[in-house]
Amino acid sequence: MGVIHVTDRQGQRHTLECVEGWRVMEIIRDWGLPIEGVCGGACECATCHVFIAKDWVEKLDPATDEEEDQLDTVITHPTSRLSCQIIWTPDLDGLELTLAPANG
């Protein structure tokens, strides 16, 4: 068991308990935070876009080409990732991230 820390679009930080093997997008959605995840984790929509805290970027598996292609459809920061492409494991206990602004 472990947690992730998610800062929402109002700047409020939430600590969410995680389930191993779940996509980070699913964890955020399951706790009721406003993340869309329209395509359901298929890496097809970029509505689960998040900014990863700098210290954590290196600890994640790098983005695939497919994920980079989707990131092309949003305004990214240097630490942008799609949270549906990050599978939570105990190594990510304490992962810190911020929800990206919603697309219009």
Partner: peptide
């Protein structure tokens, strides 16, 4: 999921 529409990038005051 509804009708497909162009994604609006979240740029301030874009509307």
């Amino acid at each position: 999921g509804g009708s497909f529409q162009p994604k609006k990038p979240p740029m301030e005051n874009i509307e």
